[in-house]
């Protein structure tokens, strides 16, 4: 699916970041006490993370809020200096912020924008072309191609403030990719977009990866982004990497069950249903069982034979639930 090779582009070894934050109690007394003497606390946002990403890979970066995803992205793009550990991207040390490094990467932040608000996106693109040394003709050709991939050709001449959120995000992507970076970091690129725009952005990213062999590392709240784009996921929890590998394998490991949902002709006593397997939920005529992968065929056959079935469906639990299950437990490794 992705255009991966063996060459390591992103190398991260034992990377950690600690912040010092002021600690203040609420209320007037807390305010005054804080005014006189400040208390500080160390927050370990990232606590020793290691991984390698090969050229052309598309990797999903997962974890609940505050897990350390954004901090890691910022360390990889040179915005944040690591407390300990090392990181190299395309052979550069990000925090030196060498101009050649900056020309090879991009960071798209779903919540922040770089386009000039009151002008058409084309004007901002002109600045970016000059700043990233893209020759004029080349820039025009790239803008044309990217705009077509994103299907926003006709909105580039409208002031950015007039664009819808989805259009604006696509224009931001265009601006971020105009210099054709070979390593693309995305932080929640689809946040707040409607389903159509989300699908379009995903399709664009896959296309970009295939056309230019770009390496992509993205965080997202929407599992659909990850399942659609990434074969490999990095799961962070509380600043630590708890899983690195195949998305499908992770699902099998964490959620070794499938859901069998049956709609019956009439409600039946619970004992009769429980005899067939672990019941997840009974809701009138609709019953849901959790069935281990190995027992699936047998259980389904049994249900069909012994119960008055009107409809039957076998599904994987939604991946959000799977992730939630990983993070609900105290130590995921212990369960594996």
């Amino acid at each position: 699916m992705s255009a991966a090779s063996d060459e390591v582009v992103v190398h991260v070894a034992d990377l950690a970041k600690h912040y010092r934050v002021a600690d203040k109690q609420p209320g007037v007394v807390g305010t005054l006490r804080h005014f006189v003497r400040r208390k500080h606390r160390i927050i370990e946002a990232v606590r020793g993370v290691s991984f390698d990403i090969a050229r052309g890979e598309m990797v999903g970066f997962l974890g609940p809020n505050g897990a350390g995803k954004t901090t890691t992205l910022k360390m990889l793009t040179g915005l944040v200096h690591p407390t300990t550990g090392e990181a190299t991207v395309s052979g550069f040390v990000p925090f030196r912020r060498h101009a050649d490094f900056l020309r090879q990467i991009t960071l798209v932040m779903g919540q922040k924008q770089q386009l000039v608000w009151d002008l058409p996106a084309l004007d901002s693109l002109r600045i970016n072309a000059a700043v990233y040394d893209v020759p004029k003709a080349e820039a025009e050709q790239r803008i044309g191609a990217l705009a077509e991939m994103l299907s926003i050709t006709d909105i580039l001449t409208q002031p950015v403030r007039k664009l819808s959120l989805g259009q604006r995000m696509k224009a931001e992507l265009l601006a971020a990719l105009l210099h054709r970076p070979s390593v693309v970091f995305l932080d929640e690129p689809t946040l707040g977009l409607d389903v159509n725009a989300q699908t379009a952005v995903r399709a664009f990213l896959r296309d970009y990866n295939e056309r230019y062999g770009a390496t992509i590392l993205l965080t997202s709240h929407y599992m659909a982004d990850i399942t659609a784009l990434c074969e490999r996921v990095l799961l962070v929890h509380d600043g630590r990497l708890v899983y690195d590998g195949d998305l499908a394998a992770m699902v099998a490991r964490v959620a070794p069950h499938r859901e069998v949902e049956v709609e019956l002709e009439q409600p039946l006593p619970a004992e009769q249903l429980a005899a067939l397997g672990e019941i997840e939920r009974v809701d009138g005529c609709v019953v849901r069982w959790l069935v281990p992968h190995g027992a699936l065929t047998r259980t389904v056959a049994q249900i069909m034979q012994t119960l008055p079935v009107r409809d039957l469906r076998v599904t994987d639990p939604p991946i959000e639930e799977i992730i939630g299950r990983v993070f609900a437990g105290p130590a995921p490794e212990a369960r594996a």
Partner: peptide, 15 residues
């Protein structure tokens, strides 16, 4: 007003 004074007092140098 008590909440906004609390917010502003965060800035000691400002005082």
């Amino acid at each position: 007003w008590s909440t906004s004074v609390a917010a502003e007092m965060e800035y000691r140098v400002d005082f």
